[in-house]
Design a protein around this nucleic acid. Structure first.
Length: 779
DNA sequence: GCCAAGTTCCC
DNA sequence: CGGGAACTTGG
């Protein structure tokens, strides 16, 4: 820049702050004339970085309108000014509702044109830049709390000196300095403390003001009023950060309410979080809402909430009601992206597949004790939803082998982790994980399952070409979520043995010290298991969950660990493997149509809490004998099943039995002759082959919600919460600049828009996971 | 000692 | 860059 004014970027000094914004009232500024127009508001959420984090770069503050492809930066234009170069100064201010109450913030700006001492940013504008200042490269430096008071005190002192200097220009700097009394200093201290206490370190606004260099007085003179941006909040902080539902244990419940649901969330404050259920009509108007019930004690370490569903407005449903669920933060009325939730009629019987299959076993159509899902699942007045879907069938020319091979090619991510190709996202199966090292061939038991499923797909396609979606995989696995309390950086693992459709064991394992933490009475382990299947028929969570489960089924739970850890708490979810035992097991004798299924020793899930934990996983995985599985209590009374040590741990009960989409694939149980603990898990090969005698009902077209569709956030007709800086009392009426709504644009209905998915030219069964996006893509 | 908040580290 | 997690502090 050729301007004689400050250009910090080339090492010139900052313009002298002779007239600073605190000592010159607004009415000194000509408001009829030049003014600043904020043409690009800064993004509303941004991670503030501590000074210690300022090594290297960590992203820059962009404009709210910016997106991945189009980087835009906060921009102001100096209007009605053509009188030569001017300086637009930017400083951070506090975010009080009333701009008049805002103070200079202790946080600083970093980046291009920013002064390291003042933390302010100054850009010179002139006719060559169309009097427009673009603030690129900005970072917000988070001043550590412990330093806040001191900074404020220093500033106050400097402010006083500045005033004195203006009042008494004849005095020397030293004389002025000495005129400050101890009383003054004490006063500064008290005031600084008060201000520091009130200062919200997670909210700032950008305050812009234009100055002209006054050659006569050799100082900078403001030529506009100050203009504030919208609020910029710290993305890292629980009270201002993004609200996000990470995972829900179940996304359906009876309309009568009272169902316990577990939810993993991004960091929240237990005193400032609600779970809101709401329903919109076809026009997107909200017609009902209610809050989930929970206490502060039900918020586990800021990352999990255990709550009870509120009753639906009608407890006499005849068909399922599809509603939404979202997090709400009362303080700023911020909300999370909603997720689907379904209320179903309360009279619906919920039975275990085990019981079902026992009954159906007498049916000659179901010699294997499975039974067609259509028949099995239609308990109520609606058909069971389907989870994993193709948007279209495999190429009709493809043989089942073709399909299967494709599946194999594209599925190493799931099936043969050591191959590593075709993986989605970051590489899995890192050396530190507990993934069993199995070749493709050695996973033939899994392959069989695939084959069966894909043969069925092709068969189905042939028989009903008009169908556009269908189940991909049976869901024979359940998810388990365990929350634990551990306060040290010990390696924490979890092991589980699991009888699909029945019950399971859970224990925590600490590989680093070889200790097993049992689920005894005084232990802090809370365990839980749910089938994650949605009953709604919406793709909703199912896609993601299905993928999770799918992956975990064939790879290992360790890789699937969703870990949230805080220093004192770990929460992690486990998805169960089916027969993915690292070492082949001796088949147990088949004495009945029921086959035993167990994946004992397969689960050594690390919380990721520490490196030590991660690195110790393989060791743990190889250690089978240390397993101290624990018996169950309060289990459903399954014929012939007896569990060991029933009093030693809390029950793990697998719910939603009737949600398992394809129970024909469910391995059935045989009595655990050895008493349960330590018994030999069967391989998948021991399980009965899946047989399909009946087709499923016609399937629904895929409905998806575009990911991160902000339109759904508020819904038509629903008003966004008032934004403080948009309120009428804003004291800058004469300044015109575009106001950013705090809420996304409202243009679409709340209802899930239908999107037709075009499959890729080349069929890949697994790609359905990728292109069938929905608003529940979480990770 | 617990635990949330705050800060730093590092992939 | 962007994000996650580890570590530290303080109520």
């Amino acid at each position: 820049m050729a301007s004689p004014y400050s250009d910090v970027s080339v090492g010139l000094p900052s313009p002298p702050t002779v007239v600073s914004d605190y000592n010159r009232p607004y009415d000194c500024v000509n408001t009829d004339g030049p003014h600043l127009i904020l043409t690009e508001q800064p993004q509303s959420k941004f991670r503030f970085r501590y000074k210690s984090e300022m090594v290297g770069t960590h992203g820059q503050l962009k404009a709210e309108r910016a997106d991945r492809n189009k980087p835009i930066f906060p921009t102001v234009k100096l209007a009605k000014w053509s009188d030569g170069p001017a300086v637009v100064r930017l400083a951070l201010y506090t975010g009080e509702d009333n701009p008049n109450q805002r103070r200079r913030h202790v946080h600083e700006l970093s980046g291009k044109n920013c002064d390291k001492d003042t933390g302010m940013c100054e850009v010179v504008v002139d006719h060559t830049t169309d009097y427009t200042a673009t603030f690129q490269n900005l970072g917000i430096i988070h001043i550590a709390k412990r330093d806040v008071k001191d900074i404020i005190r220093q500033r106050k002192k400097a402010e006083l000196i500045e005033h004195a200097r203006l009042r008494r220009p004849h005095c020397t700097q030293e004389e002025i300095r000495q005129s400050i009394t101890p009383t003054d200093l004490k006063k500064f201290d008290e005031e600084a403390e008060e201000i520091a206490k009130a200062m919200d370190l997670n909210k700032v606004v950008l305050r812009f003001q234009a100055f002209q260099y006054d050659t006569t007085h050799a100082c900078y003179r403001p030529i506009t009023r100050a203009v504030d941006s919208e609020l910029v909040v710290n993305l890292k902080n629980a009270s201002t950060g993004e609200l996000k539902i990470v995972r829900i244990s179940q996304c359906s419940a009876p309309c009568t309410g009272g169902t316990e649901v577990w939810m993993l969330v991004e960091k929240v404050k237990k005193t400032n979080i609600k779970i809101r259920f709401f329903e919109c009509d076809a026009d997107g108007n909200e017609v009902w809402s209610a809050y989930g019930e929970f206490s502060e004690a039900d918020v586990h370490h800021q990352y999990a909430i255990i709550f009870r569903t509120p009753p639906y407005h009608s407890t006499n449903l005849r068909s399922p009601a599809h509603v939404k669920i979202q997090l709400e933060r009362p303080n700023d009325r911020d909300i999370s992206e909603p997720r689907d939730f379904t209320y179903y009629p309360s009279n619906r019987k919920r039975q275990s597949p085990f019981m079902e299959s026992a009954r159906l076993d007498e049916d000659e159509d179901y010699p294997q004790g499975g039974g067609d899902r259509t028949k099995r699942m239609c308990h109520g007045s609606y058909t069971e939803p389907l989870d994993l879907r193709f948007s279209e069938f495999p190429s009709k020319h493809a043989s089942s082998d073709d399909v299967f091979n494709k599946c194999g090619e594209c599925a190493p991510n799931f099936l043969a982790p050591d191959r590593g190709s075709c993986s989605r996202g970051r590489a899995r199966a890192s050396s530190g994980s507990a993934l069993p090292s199995q070749s493709w061939d050695s996973q033939s038991q899994h392959s069989n399952l695939f084959r069966t499923e894909f043969e069925r797909l092709v068969e189905l396609r042939e028989q009903n070409k008009s169908q556009t979606s269908m189940n991909l995989m049976p869901k024979y696995s359940s998810s388990m979520l365990a929350l634990s309390d551990h306060n040290k950086s010990e390696a924490i693992g979890a092991r589980s043995s699991h009888y699909c459709g029945g019950s399971g064991f859970l224990s925590l394992h600490e590989p680093s010290i070889g200790r097993e933490q049992s689920c005894s009475q005084d232990s802090l382990i809370e365990s839980f298991a749910r089938d994650c299947t949605t009953e709604s028929g919406h793709p909703s969570t199912s896609m993601v969950k299905a993928e999770d489960q799918f992956r975990s089924t064939y790879v290992s739970a360790a890789d699937n660990t969703h870990s949230h850890s805080s220093q004192a708490g770990h929460s992690f979810s486990l998805s169960h493997s089916l027969g993915s035992s690292p070492t082949p097991q001796t088949p147990s004798p088949v004495s009945s149509p029921y086959r035993k299924f167990s994946v004992d020793n397969d689960f050594r899930l690390m919380t990721g809490h520490s490196k030590a934990a991660r690195s110790s996983v393989p060791e743990a995985a190889g250690d089978g004998k240390a397993s101290q599985t624990l018996g169950m209590s309060s289990l459903p009374e399954y014929p012939g099943i007896s569990w060991p040590k029933p009093d030693e741990c809390r029950a793990l009960e697998y719910h939603n039995y009737d949600n398992i989409p394809n129970a024909t694939s469910l391995p059935n149980l045989i009595p655990d002759q050895s008493g349960g603990a330590g018994s030999t898990p069967p391989t998948y090969a021991e399980l009965q082959p899946v047989q399909h005698h009946h087709l499923r009902p016609p399937l629904q077209p895929i409905q998806t919600t575009p990911s991160l569709d902000s339109h759904a956030k508020w819904g038509v007709g629903a008003s966004p919460p008032p934004h403080p800086v948009n309120s009428p009392n804003r004291d800058q009426a004469s300044i015109e600049y575009p106001r950013r709504s705090s809420a996304p644009n409202i243009s679409g209905p709340c209802q899930t828009p239908t999107v037709t998915i075009t499959p890729p030219a080349e069929f890949s069964p697994f790609s359905s996971f990728f292109w069938n996006t929905n608003d529940d893509i979480l990770e």
